[in-house]
Amino acid sequence: MSTAPDLKFAFGNFNYICSTVSLTLCPLVGGPDGIEPVCYSRNVRIADTLIFQPSTLIIHIIALIMTAIMIYHIRSKYTAVGRKEIIMFFYLYMLVTIMDLLLVSGIIPTASQLYPYFTGVHIGLISATFWCLLLNGFVGFQFAEDGTPLSLWSIRISSLVVCAAVAFLSIATFRNMSPFDPLHPVALWVVFFIFNGASLLIYVILQIVLVVNTLDDRWPLGDIVFGIAFFATGQVILYVFSLDICNFAKHYIDGLFFGTIATLLSVMMVYKYWDSITKEDLEFSVGSKQNVWEVKELMADDELAQGRMYQQGPGGGGGGGFGYGSQPGYGQPNYYEERY
């Protein structure tokens, strides 16, 4: 049975973490051959292709489906505040999931010369996702009106800069470009844990302030609490209990499986929170057309009962100036038909 590694957690060092759970960067730091976890999920062979972490791969596919559904619902809320801003976060999360799927499953093998570059982009996308979420935390305060070029392009450009900078830092560390060293990846460790964690913490604080000071409803605070609980639980399982889970499940699953599930649930709570604090203007929504059609049908019944009140006038002409004689193109019923 695998036991916990005889290592201690240290600032700026991935040795203990990578000995516990197989992160995508672990084969590239800590030594010439990277760091291999003590216990990890067993692989399967499909069509002469070796697939690692098959259970986690299934969760990644489910995450992509769920993210696509959330993006669809966000896009359908045409007048919701911050719709275009928050959708960038979900697009970035989808890209992170795709990269994680390719790297963790071994579709891009660690022996490939492209693996360090894909891993660098993957880490850059993770940081860009946290940064995008942080900026979305300011949208509700209306420092810049949502949906405007200033609001949208500030998030897009800054997220791209963060992604490029972190990707360069990661690749430089993996390739041992001075002054970055894969044996002591302190800068990468700071970005991976402190920068990303601080971005998430600031976003949570901003949303609590927004709900308390702006909204009359306090129920969105529950969405925030559940989201943080899911994320924190996933991180604890990933970095603390991964070996215990792997040994107990006899290598069928490990902490990465439950960590991926918890991350998906926390992202879903971000959507649930945003949906709970945004109200769509029904006057301009597609769903309001149903009510218009109902009004039209009721008016048609009234007209039949009253003898075509808009076109009936003395001598068959349009009386009262509503029907404009016998011309059918200007009556009220035709107005609804032309408009809807």
Rank of each mutant, 00 (worst) to 15 (best):
T233W: 10
N13F: 01
G317H: 09
V29Y: 03
S22D: 15
I126T: 13
F226R: 03
D216L: 06
F230L: 04
L103Q: 13
L221G: 09
Y340S: 13
V270K: 01
D301S: 05
P54H: 04
F174W: 07
A80I: 14
L95K: 02
I245Y: 07
D281R: 06
F11W: 12
N13S: 13
V212I: 15
C132F: 01
R218Y: 08
I61T: 10
V44A: 02
F130D: 12
K296S: 02
M177L: 13
P328K: 05
C26T: 06
C18F: 03
F195A: 14
E280F: 07
E297W: 01
D6H: 05
A10C: 07
L95S: 08
L304C: 00
F118H: 07
L169W: 05
E283N: 10
F9W: 15
F52D: 13
M268C: 07
G331A: 01
G307Y: 07
A198H: 03
I126S: 11
A128G: 10
G34L: 02
Q207N: 15
G120F: 01
E297N: 05
F52Q: 13
K84V: 05
A164W: 07
M299L: 14
F248T: 12
E85D: 14
G319R: 06
Y273K: 00
A249F: 05
L125E: 01
M70R: 08
T20H: 04
I71C: 12
G137F: 05
A198W: 06
F9H: 06
T278V: 14
S2I: 02
T148S: 13
G31K: 04
A10Y: 02
G255I: 03
L102W: 04
I65K: 09
S199D: 13
M299K: 04
V270A: 12
P27N: 08
V267M: 10
P5G: 08
Y340L: 15
D217K: 12
G227Q: 05
A165I: 11
L206V: 11
T97D: 15
D223T: 11
G307L: 06
G325R: 01
L50H: 08
R218L: 06
W189A: 07
L95W: 04
V286M: 02
I98N: 08
S41Q: 15
F89T: 15
R156Y: 14
W293L: 15
S266W: 01
V190R: 06
I17P: 00
V240E: 14
R45D: 09
D48F: 04
Y239H: 13
L64H: 09
Y340A: 13
L125A: 07
I87C: 10
I107Y: 10
I62C: 12
P5T: 02
Y324H: 06
P27R: 07
L304T: 12
L95E: 05
L282Q: 09
V286Y: 03
Y336E: 03
G137K: 01
W131G: 08
V21Q: 10
R175G: 04
N13W: 01
